[in-house]
Computed example of a mutant assay.
Amino acid sequence: MSGCPGQVNIDTGTVSAFVSQNSPMRHKLKAELNGRDMVMTQTAKAEFDNMIRVAGPQEKARAQRFMYRVTVVPGNPSSRAANLQTTKKVGANDKVIFGTGDNMSIPTITSDAKFVRGASAQGVDFDVIVHDPVPLTGT
């Protein structure tokens, strides 16, 4: 599976930054992703579905609208991601999420700098766009 230059893989933290009430990152992310097709692994979608339970009504409504613009894809990590050792910084879900973007030859946009550093420490550098994390506010 190979991606097109117009695609980007989004992780759970990025969806949170898009839908969080009064998110300082929303406009920056919109500008960064302007015109690109967003994909999200089933793993990231499941994480987000679990996280959205703490969201407030405005965030839930924004999340629903946002997900209409995202194509959910099966997790299919690259061998270099699958071969990473699972550690405190390198989680099993992260290996699927980032590894799928790697396998599709598209960047992953993320707020998970901890994973990026952990993978790099194991000799694997992913094509990533890192942004500041934005938690859900519950409003």
Score class of each variant (00 low, 15 high):
M25Q: 14
F98L: 03
G123S: 07
N34H: 12
A17C: 09
G123A: 00
T12E: 08
S79Q: 15
H131A: 07
Q85Y: 12
T71V: 07
A55P: 04
K114R: 14
N50R: 13
I106M: 01
E32A: 15
P133D: 00
A31F: 10
V70Q: 10
N22I: 05
S78F: 05
P5W: 07
A119Y: 04
S2T: 13
R53V: 12
D127N: 11
K28D: 09
P107Q: 00
H27G: 09
A113K: 14
N103S: 14
S20K: 06
V70I: 15
I97V: 00
S78T: 12
Q64V: 09
G56K: 01
P107R: 05
N83P: 01
V128I: 03
A63C: 13
D102L: 02
P24E: 01
Y68H: 13
M1G: 15
T139C: 08
V90F: 00
H27I: 07
R26M: 04
D37I: 10
S79F: 13
T100M: 01
T108M: 02
N76H: 13
D132V: 06
G56A: 02
Q64C: 06
R53K: 13
Q58V: 15
T139G: 11
E59D: 03
M40F: 00
M51C: 09
F115V: 03
K45A: 13
F18T: 02
Q58A: 09
D37Q: 12
G35E: 08
T110Q: 08
P74K: 07
A119I: 01
G13A: 02
N50I: 10
S105N: 15
L29M: 02
A31T: 14
L84V: 13
A82Q: 15
D11K: 02
T137I: 06
N83Q: 08
G3Q: 03
A31W: 10
E59M: 04
Q85N: 15
M67F: 08
R69P: 00
A46M: 14
T100P: 00
T137R: 11
